[in-house]
Amino acid sequence: MNLAEQAQRSVAPSPAVLTARGAAKTYPGGVRALEPVDLEVREGEFVTLIGPSGCGKSTLLRILAGLAAPSGGEIRWWGGGADRLGEPGRHLSFVFQDPTLMPWASVAANVRLPLDLARRARGESDPRVAAALGLVGLGGFESSYPRQLSGGMQMRVSIARALVTDPDLLLMDEPFGALDEITRARLDADLLALWSRRRLTVVFVTHSIYEAVFLSTRVLVLSARPGRIVGEVAIDAPFPRGDAFRVSTGFAGFCQRLSDLLAQASATGAVGA
């Protein structure tokens, strides 16, 4: 995207994909995981949540995916309710923090699951499964079983399963946490390429400040439990971002700001909790 386009975008903001108003969560048993959160994610944004462990990132992401009901507030997807998800242009995919694969099904069958559940014909779904597996570098593992794969490979299967439906909104909970630095950097780059090619909207959770800066258009910092958004940094570096960006001074500056915010967030949370 060039500067003119960027300027135009800020004049006429793209439509909201995800809106949370006062979304809060108290688990049964009284654990207050999330203070009311207001959040708007617009089409084409790449928003990353970071925060101390146990601060409610997964909880927030599950609420944003409609997987868990908030105990207060409401969530809208493309201005509509959860019942309209899955309509054309409203496809949502979620990558869990754990691989969450069916142990009795082969890799291909695991990836094909969303298409099978939507009753797509094999002739249509098989090429898509192969393409999704190729995207995460697991071509040739179609007939393996999850137990035969390493933790990182299982995670990539679960990413392939999320991509196979060609989602418009992708929610990912620490998807690359179990991977080595090199694979992670490669998948980060692949994810960015996919994001810009498909004009995806992504909400991402990570513990890595570097990954957050590299990937995101915007990073939100959550405080320690109960989580609430305590800071926001727009990463307004141009795309496409390559390895040069990782070593630029701008990159270091963003990381520094996030690191300071995160230190503050952990401190305030600890006092409040």
Partner: peptide, 12 residues
Amino acid sequence: DPGLAALFRMYR
């Protein structure tokens, strides 16, 4: 597995 159950629900 509660995660798989959530996944199945998500895909309706």
